[in-house]
Nucleic acid binder design. Structure first.
Lengths: 192, 192, 192, 192
DNA sequence: AATGAATGAGAGTTCATTCAT
DNA sequence: TATGAATGAACTCTCATTCAT
């Protein structure tokens, strides 16, 4: 019966992703069970808590993303990954709505993959050397959230990504002059 | 008794901001009433629906931000505004969590204020001329969302903002080469 | 200020009749106050309880009916009164929905008027002599209730009244043969 | 567990009939649940809406009556049925109070059964031939309503029924002379 | 192991009634 | 006396979770 159980687990996860993606995290567990074709009791046997279910689905999603990131590489891998994620953000409302249900391990996994991409981009010269992984992750998450809540059209998405990419690529060292109580900057990121 | 009513209205709004900020939009109306020190009926007399309350609080917040933006200006007004907002993002979970309750008018107001700041920054040369207001708003919202959900520390926040600021300031024209199916890396952000 | 008070009382009663007639007895007092153009406090000053208001409106209505009955008379007065009442039953949902809020005095008043009509009809020979007032009232109330809840059309109303009128007029003495566990009657109300 | 569910369903219906019969349709769902000995959630699992519950109980009641009618017959079946119904009217406030929740199918069922009884009575000669089913139903409903709201004693009930029975049996053709605009109106029940 | 009926706290909302102004 | 804001119990309904079958 191990096979049955495993299959159910998968069906539940798939159903949960579908439901929470479209109806948001406040959708009912019962609807998930219905879509998965299992009884509510079965669902709770596999995931004792709704949060557990949310965490599981988030974890799986992040793992998938990490894996996807791993298949990319080269000078523009990071850029491609960014764009793909942002494009899917709305569809994957989950990533976003469930951010609270932190799953550090899974996030770490994705972080590593992104770190790899970052390294390669820097080696290739498409991203400046003093950018570090945490801020890249921060930007990634931010843009996904923004895309989700903002309902961007393609145009806006491109223009927004362009600004971020430009920031990642700019030759000048990252500004320090602008920080805190604004003194009197000439050009931000100006001098070579 | 008009005075009492007005005072209660304020207390309810304050309480709502407090509660929804900390517990999210799914916090209960009764908790708001309790914190405001009014009976539940009073709350519903002022805001016949929970959504009405959410909309009211969001509207007030956006108006406040727009006003704040209006007091800024000059070369770095936009940057300052960005930083302030992001700093408050966690505290102002509301702006974020309630994006659905759309209050177009209020949003438009903020957009205008940001447009002003953008114009001034461009005139001063701290932001490149081909950046437009929509993407600036998109970045603003994204970073707030990210800051909120990501729990950034000060360091990370600064580094993330720096990247965005650099993107807004970069002299090179916004990339076109990287858009869409990435063909030929080589020139991200232009000069080698 | 006695004049004001009296005028308010009238306006409230009128509004109440209007509202309860159309929305049923479960309509809100506040709506009555709104239609009457007075504050809710004023309404409750005049009628300390919703039931008091319902009783007042019922009493007024019954008095009005009694008065009208008094203007009728002759061989067909009772029949006319019956028909009029039933015709209006739906419109005067009040009489019906509020029957619980018994106002014995007012009912007595109407009862007397109906008794008068009955007497005249019997004298004229349009209603048989052994019919008494209580059953006439019972029939009157029943038909009003039925008309209200049943949503009769004109045709059905006429046919139903016809049966009752025939019963009131039948030459034969009121059956006794049919009462209780049915024995084996030949004709009901048959033999003279 | 299908058995349990079914038993609960029955208990809920029984409790609902009891409660709504005594307290009217505005009685609370929770009281029904309490009397049924189930949790409120169980009640709503079986009847997702209060109206659903009301409809179910009404339907069951009407079905029961139709069935009862079907066991009767002969010359006096209709009369017996009338009397029984009126006797139970007070106990069956439900039939009455819930008329709004219309369950056309169930009503139709009862109508048919009454039609059968009517036919038999006419064949037997205890009811005149030109009476039709709709007015019989109308009288039935009216008398139930009247009995319910009027709180008739046995005597009054008998005398009232006698009048109606006489009307159903009278040899004379149904009046036509009395119909329509009886000369002198005045507006009965209209506000002055 | 799976089922799905039962649970019951809690949510949003209404409304008769009170009371400070 | 009139006003209308405030009150708070009560109501219908939802849903995460438990548990008998």
């Amino acid at each position: 019966m191990r096979a049955d159980a495993q299959r159910n687990q998968q069906r539940i996860l798939d159903a949960a992703e579908e439901v929470f993606t479209h109806r948001g995290a406040s959708a009912s567990t019962e609807e998930v069970a219905r879509l998965a074709g299992v009884a509510i009791g079965t669902l709770f046997r596999h995931f004792p808590t709704k949060d557990d279910l949310l965490a599981a689905i988030l974890k799986r999603l992040l793992a998938r993303l990490a894996q996807e990131a791993a298949t990319l590489g080269g000078a523009d891998g990071l850029h491609i990954f960014f764009r793909r994620l942002v494009e899917q953000a709305a569809a994957k409302r989950t990533v976003v709505a469930l951010a609270d249900v932190s799953v550090p391990a899974a996030v770490g996994q994705l972080g590593e993959a992104v770190g790899q991409l970052l390294g390669q981009a820097q080696t290739a010269g498409t991203v400046r050397g003093d950018v570090r992984q945490p801020e890249v992750m921060a930007l990634l998450v931010s843009l996904c959230q923004g895309a989700l809540h903002g309902g961007w059209d393609v145009q806006l998405q491109e223009r927004t990504l362009d600004v971020v990419f430009a920031g990642l690529a700019a030759q000048a060292p990252l500004a320090g002059s602008l920080r805190r109580p604004p003194p009197r900057p000439g050009a931000v990121g100006g001098r070579p």
